[in-house]
């Protein structure tokens, strides 16, 4: 058996009667340095990434932190039932889906448009300057960004209010972050402000792959700038757009946590609170561990399915999968 399975290894392990298992260990001993280099991190991986999955049992218990595991009361799917009867949870789910959809659409359209326009800039130095500046907000933390956004939207001398009053659009300053219905839009635009420049990178890289001969041919045929963008550049980056779109659908329940948490307040809570904040509030602040874990588990399981489906679809379409 070993003979036919590993003819190459025969030279180093000349015993024909070795079966697969001892061979595996023999190789492992030979590669003990590699093993020593990776084993500590396998243990780390197990503790920090796989062990917490055990915590999902909490969702099926009436968890009391003081009790040991064997003393916990098992309640089955009770907490999941409670979750779906909880109006707050339904609201939070709505907010999550709404904000991630808005972010998805807004983020895609703005990044593609900006990439197309950047690609049309003739002066290379100017183009690089714009790119460098547009990356800036991506690198700063959400805490800094939220501070900046809250200041800009403030009714006391905030630049947005001042600008709108100067233009005569409004007469009185608006407390933007105090109006619940505005929150989804503010959140979406904040996301665009922070990441639009950064998100152009992938598209600009894809545009460099387009054959310049296509543009020359189009120019000779008398196609204008807009026509060239529409008929050459856009179709040229279509595969990248499709793959990114599919992958992003996989992250539909990941509407973000930091902007909502940092810009959210008592007044806009009905529209700003999403699944992640719900988990944090119920678990850490209110100590209702079981319900919180049930909500977190719900999110992870759906995300897992979505991501695998997205990955599979992207692969089926013959594109290189992202992860």
């Amino acid at each position: 058996m070993a003979k036919e399975a590993s003819p190459g290894i025969q030279t180093t392990t000349p015993k024909p009667q070795t079966s697969h298992i001892p061979l595996f260990f023999k190789k492992l001993v030979q590669q003990r340095v590699l093993l020593l280099m990776s084993a500590p991190f396998l243990i780390w991986l197990f503790i920090f990434k796989y062990l917490p999955l055990w915590g999902w049992t909490i969702a099926f218990q009436d968890f009391k932190p003081a009790k040991s595991f064997s003393d916990q009361k098992w309640v089955g799917f009770e907490h999941f039932k409670m979750l779906f009867q909880d109006e707050k949870f339904i609201q939070v789910l709505r907010n999550t889906l709404a904000m991630s959809t808005i972010n998805l659409v807004l983020g895609f359209v703005t990044a593609i448009v900006l990439a197309l326009l950047l690609n049309e800039l003739r002066f290379v130095l100017f183009k690089r300057l714009v790119q460098t500046v547009s990356y800036l907000p991506h690198f700063i933390s959400w805490v800094v960004a939220a501070n900046i956004i809250a200041t800009a939207l403030s009714p006391d001398n905030g630049i947005v209010n001042e600008l709108l009053m100067w233009l005569g659009v409004i007469k009185e300053p608006i407390l933007f972050l105090g109006i619940p219905e505005y929150f989804w839009g503010i959140n979406g635009l904040s996301e665009v402000w922070k990441n639009v420049g950064w998100n152009t990178i992938v598209y600009l890289a894809a545009m460099t792959m387009i054959d310049p001969a296509q543009y020359e041919a189009a120019e000779i045929d008398g196609a204008g700038r807009i026509q060239r963008i529409w008929h050459i550049t856009l179709p040229g980056i279509k595969p990248v757009i499709i793959v990114l779109l599919i992958m992003n659908i996989g992250y539909l329940l990941e509407s973000g946590f930091e902007p909502q948490y940092l810009l959210g307040n008592g007044m806009n809570v009905d529209y700003s609170e999403n699944l992640d904040i719900f988990v944090l509030k119920y678990g850490i602040a209110m100590g209702n561990f079981s319900l919180s874990v049930a909500a977190g588990m719900f999110k992870t399981v759906i995300s897992f399915i979505l991501l695998f489906a997205a990955n599979y679809t992207a692969k089926r379409m013959g594109e290189s999968r992202l992860f």
């Binding site: 595996f24 190789k27 492992l28 590669q31 590699l34 093993l35 990776s38 396998l42 991986l45 503790i47 920090f48 990434k49 796989y50 062990l51 917490p52 999955l53 055990w54 915590g55 999902w56 909490i58 932190p65 992640d276 988990v279 944090l280 678990g283 850490i284 561990f289 919180s292 874990v293 977190g296 588990m297 999110k299 992870t300 995300s303 897992f304 991501l307 695998f308 992860f323």
Partner: peptide, 27 residues
Amino acid sequence: FVLRKFITIAFILTMYFNGGLIPNFLL
């Protein structure tokens, strides 16, 4: 390396899920 595939998959799988806030906190 005999564990190459195993380690790679063990790491990549963790991109798809995590224990979540509370289990991590308790850990």
